[in-house]
Design a protein around this nucleic acid. Sequence first.
DNA 1: CGATTCCTTGATATGAGTCAACAGGTGTGG
DNA 2: CCACACCTGTTGACTCATATCAAGGAATCG
Lengths: 245, 245
Amino acid sequence: MPHLALLIRRLRSATQLGEDDIAAVRALPLQVKAVEPETPIALEGDRPHACCIIVNGFAYRSKLTESGKRQILSFHIPGDIPDLQSLVLKTMDHDLVTISAATLAFIDHADLSRLIDTHAAVARALWRETMVDAAMFRERILNLGVRSASARMAHLLVELRQRLAEVGLVEIDDKEYRFPITQSALADALGLSTVHVNRVLQEFRSQRVLDIRKNLVKLIDVEKVVAAGEFDPAYLHQIDNSRPG
Amino acid sequence: MPHLALLIRRLRSATQLGEDDIAAVRALPLQVKAVEPETPIALEGDRPHACCIIVNGFAYRSKLTESGKRQILSFHIPGDIPDLQSLVLKTMDHDLVTISAATLAFIDHADLSRLIDTHAAVARALWRETMVDAAMFRERILNLGVRSASARMAHLLVELRQRLAEVGLVEIDDKEYRFPITQSALADALGLSTVHVNRVLQEFRSQRVLDIRKNLVKLIDVEKVVAAGEFDPAYLHQIDNSRPG
DNA sequence: CGATTCCTTGATATGAGTCAACAGGTGTGG
DNA sequence: CCACACCTGTTGACTCATATCAAGGAATCG
């Protein structure tokens, strides 16, 4: 599979791109790299000279407090450009790290800049990506601010399934997907302790609502998970709403 | 003062804009409106046809859960375009509401679109705004996920001062600023109950760290507030770091 | 197969929520 | 100009969700 296939698929699903736009994206010089799990792609304070597309595998973005606690800000899946902002905000304000072994395609900032300057539709599509990124952060704020531990977990897991479905990595009705997450990482993402994550998970398991085992997330009763997480996919802006109206 | 002065000031401080770019921004047709406190500018589900620049006054963005709890996502000050994303993500995924009486300048999406298509540097500057918006959301996630109630409050109040300073609404060393916030709104922003906000505030007051009274935020001991909130302004990306390096 | 890492469990602690009542201001209408 | 309502802030008593601490068990890996 071509390295940019998933990204292009997502860009097209949301924005009108001409054939020349697609061709220009496909023509980008890529530096493809296979990396280990837990490889830092960019760390807070870095000034990267390239953006990274996840071809395969998963990554997360995180920030540390002075006191050393880690908050995971977001998870990233194939087709994402998790450090797109480094093109414009030169200094990283957070870390970007792989979860699993991953294949990454790096695009030099200079090349990406040139693409944007010559292809306004691509620029618009990437701007849109930034906006959806922000929309997901907003939902995360809602999650952390007002929802209970179990609702947060359910919400996160349904969101991931939904995003994987968007790029075709799961069927929309699939109840399970591979995601190599530890309970400790889940805790850092949800603002909980690992002990509590464990207990919430066990409760979900015993209620036959959902289960996570061996990197496999099973939404046993999707309805219940969606309800528990108060999940409404509107904020992901996956449908094409870029037309006026 | 011209309506776009603060916005232009901010855009210029971060990005290289030519005289023609500035002129084009200044030439935008504006619909200026004075509104009451607690006026909804756009609500979740709306499909606005214009973006709004805050000329005067304050606003907040918020989301509601099914169960009716409100989470305030961000506060906005003069010079901000809090619904810039509506230009690209047509359907609002959250609410935008004024706090105080405010003066708003609306720019029609069509006009803004045209400006972006003809002035790449402006497009880049606005993209950057979206990225800084996302960076502030990330810090908010950190706030809610890992910081204590008092740290959250301190952090929020220093951030606001810093942003007001950026557009020149307070001097950088000023210890106080006007901000018409209720304890209940503060609670919804910080993910706390109003009772607890009240108690944290009283503790800060008695320690002579900070005080909020009658719409006046006083950072009595700025050092202590900054320390309590673990505030490091880097994430606001206020300095010009748009040059390569 | 020993070492790590991840998961699980129980006991205990605590930060923050909830409930309820009251006080101080502010605005409004009679 | 008073009376009343309403909103914001304050306080106390009690509860609860989640954290912390500590230890053991299961799985994974070189």
